[in-house]
């Protein structure tokens, strides 16, 4: 579904990504794990058009080239990005946040379908239904994360990009978030997850990549990576 080849991204003289290649097959959950500053967020921001790669290609469904598209056009082609730090719209209600998530698809699908999608998000995240008229900024961190994921789902994405959904959350809440990700996988949603909590991420993923200093160092089946001594060494106790 999403194929990235030899991606290079720089911030001025700092080379954040140096030839990253990876593949997200249809219906699979692929994770990219790595420590702070390894280039995980840069990777997702380049896919969704917020950053301009200096080199490389990002292909959606084998035919659409995403490099060079503006972020709103990337979203319209079916890539939803649930950003680092959640970035919900704090002054708007939970429902409004979800409606905004459908901004790119509303014209095609119409009001009725959008209402259905909102109900659908509420069945996945019942807490959001309870709080639907509340300002998003008043939600707890975990609820905001659920909202950010729900909002991304509203565009009926072909690929869902998740940037560190565990960030700043209590361990119990992290359990909950990863349970929901496993459910979304059951529903057949294609996902690319980047995480610092290596073992949590590998626990739900089908396939994993380890990124370090902007380069993919190790890749493999998630179950194999879990037992890979190099991963264990690098992330001892990591999640």
């Amino acid at each position: 579904m999403l194929e990235i080849k030899d991606l290079h991204v720089s911030y001025g003289l700092v080379r954040a990504l140096q030839g990253v290649s990876l593949n997200v097959p249809d219906g699979k959950l692929v994770c990219v794990i790595g420590s702070n500053g390894a280039g995980k967020t840069t990777l997702l921001r380049s896919i969704s058009g917020l950053l301009k790669p200096s080199q490389g290609s990002i292909q959606l469904a084998g035919k659409e080239e995403l490099v060079g598209r503006k972020p709103h056009m990337v979203t319209r082609s079916g890539v939803a990005h649930c950003p680092e730090g959640r970035r919900v719209f704090p002054e708007q209600t939970v429902t409004d946040n979800l409606i905004l998530g459908a901004f790119s698809t509303m014209k095609k699908t119409g009001q009725a379908e959008m209402r259905k999608d909102i109900q659908n998000v509420f069945t996945i995240f019942p807490r959001l239904q309870e709080r639907r008229e509340q300002q998003a900024g008043t939600l707890s961190g975990g609820e905001q994360q659920m909202l950010a994921i729900g909002r991304a789902l509203m565009s009926r994405p072909r690929v869902l990009l998740l940037d560190e959904p565990s960030m700043g959350l209590a361990p119990v809440i992290i359990d909950e978030v990863f349970k929901r990700l496993a459910e979304l996988k059951e529903r057949g949603i294609t996902m690319l997850l980047v995480e610092q909590l290596a073992f949590r991420a590998l626990g739900v993923a089908d396939y994993g990549y380890v990124i370090e200093n902007g380069k993919i160092m190790i890749e493999g089946e998630a179950s194999k990576l879990m037992n890979d001594p190099r991963v264990k060494e690098a992330y001892l106790g990591g999640g």
């Binding site: 503006k70 979203t75 319209r76 002054e91 708007q92 409004d96 905004l100 901004f103 790119s104």
Partner: peptide
């Protein structure tokens, strides 16, 4: 309205708004 909500969204977070498919 949808456009009105988009105006508020752009006001609070431009990057996040563009990720919603809004042409900022």
């Amino acid at each position: 309205s949808m456009l009105g909500k988009a105006v508020t969204a752009v006001a609070s977070d431009k990057d996040a708004a563009s990720l919603m498919g809004i042409n900022v």
